[in-house]
Amino acid sequence: MKIAVLIKDVPDLVEELELTEEGRLAVDDMSFVPSEWDDQALEEALILKEGDAGSTVTAVAIDTGDVDNMLFTALAKGADRGVKLVGDFNREMSNRARAEVLAHYCHTEGFDLILTGVQAIDDLDGQIAGLVAGRLGAAHASVVRDVALGSTSVTCIQEYSGGKMAELRLTVPAVLGIQAAQKTPRYVTVSKVRQMQKSASLEEIEGESSEAPALEIRRLYPPVASSHAEMWGDDVEELADRIVNLLEEKKLLRS
């Protein structure tokens, strides 16, 4: 099958999320990492390809700045093509706007199967899988894992809450929002990515955008928690003592 994986990068949550005075993310000062669920989607696609000699995997990213490394990493991991959709795009691009560009490209390329992460930490205006599927009018399912390829269909497990799930069969073209890959996403070394940067190239394709509904975001702000834990510091011994005392106080210690 002709498989596409739609990937994007998001602010690294390990670092402080700086805000501008207008209550926007200070994107220029932040470091970005591939969205963890997109990484799962890429891994699932590579596993599918490895199990089916005829399949190809194309990693697709919109050029909102610095996506080359992410695409070369996908190539180093085993993707066949790295496609960068270029145009007048920036980091503030909404998911609705992204979905327009991605859907247009996917439609033109005629992919059988489109995988992407179930969500990203910044998809305030909807998740890419559903948005792209809705624009394509394609079969789709989100919160899925364990994808398997048929000849003109794919099967997968869709998870619901509380351990309920369903096995689905979707006719291609289909769009799946991947919750987790069958295996932990593979790792490639920086040197292997560098090597790829020298030996391979990315395909730059003009992204076609069209009008998409926009939300009026008044501001972003850190939650003022209605409560916060009483903090006991970072000293291991003291922390352990405090926890034991607490257990004692709450009568949770086994006698």
Partner: peptide, 23 residues
Amino acid sequence: NSTMGMDLGAALAARTGKPMLAY
């Protein structure tokens, strides 16, 4: 914002061209 909501919400928004807000 359940499986059904995540699945349907975005697709419905895209199909109908309506704005959407998640989470």
